Amino acid sequence: MTDTKLQKARAAAAKAAEELAALEALEAERAAQNAKERHERATKHAHDVLNSWRADDEANNKAEREAKATFLEMISQEPWFVAFAEYRAHRYKRGHILNAAQNAQGLLGQTITIPENRLYDASLADDIVEAAEERARDIAADFADQLEAKRNAYVNGGSK
């Protein structure tokens, strides 16, 4: 009886091994087919990208120019930006004033004594931080004055 059971188990195991091998072969075939199809799609995509990159790049550049124009139009209407641009314009105006004075000295045959315009980089962020720091110092100074007034009131016999 043991031999029969063993033979049946071996036969079942052999059948299961055959089915497993067949299923694994089918799975490998499907994986190979999927890999082939993916490679074909990747190749087609690569050709499409190479055929369209110039048009895509031009469309992107056009969209970038339009977005920048919109940004500049919108920001130019902001009162703080108008004031900042006017403030910054004065450094360029100084250059024109100095150039006109140098030209006048040259025309009159005088030695040029007018200084050269000093151009310097300025950053909106730096200007904002500088203005904030100045305002913060003023606020802190007011606070210090209030603390000193409270102290003086207390020392002079007033309440805390």
Rank of each mutant, 00 (worst) to 15 (best):
M1I: 11
M1Y: 13
D3C: 06
D3S: 08
T4N: 08
T4M: 08
K5N: 07
L6F: 01
L6V: 02
Q7P: 02
K8E: 15
A9K: 09
A11E: 09
A13H: 05
A16Q: 04
A16E: 04
L20C: 14
A25D: 12
A25R: 05
A25W: 03
L26Y: 05
A28Q: 04
E29K: 12
E37T: 11
H39I: 13
E40I: 07
R41Y: 12
R41H: 13
A42P: 01
A42T: 02
H47M: 03
H47R: 05
H47I: 04
V49I: 14
L50R: 09
S52L: 10
W53F: 09
E58L: 14
A59E: 00
A59W: 00
K62E: 11
K62C: 10
A63I: 01
E64R: 09
E66K: 03
E66S: 03
A67Q: 08
A69H: 12
A69N: 06
T70D: 08
T70P: 00
L72A: 11
L72Y: 13
I75R: 01
Q77P: 03
Q77A: 11
W80K: 07
W80Q: 10
W80V: 12
A83F: 03
A83M: 06
F84W: 01
E86Q: 11
E86W: 08
R88G: 00
R88K: 11
A89I: 11
H90D: 04
R91D: 09
K93G: 08
R94M: 10
H96R: 06
I97Y: 07
L98F: 03
N99M: 09
N99I: 06
A100Q: 04
A100V: 04
A101N: 11
A104Q: 08
Q105T: 03
G106T: 08
G106L: 10
G106R: 06
L108A: 13
L108V: 02
G109L: 05
Q110R: 10
T113M: 04
I114L: 01
P115M: 11
R118H: 06
Y120D: 07
D121A: 06
A122N: 10
L124P: 01
L124N: 02
L124T: 09
L124R: 02
A125Q: 14
I128W: 02
V129F: 07
A131N: 08
E133D: 03
E133C: 01
R137M: 10
D138A: 14
I139V: 15
Q146H: 11
Q146C: 09
L147H: 05
K150I: 13
R151I: 15
R151P: 01
N152C: 02
V155R: 12
S159F: 02
S159P: 01
K160W: 02
K160S: 02
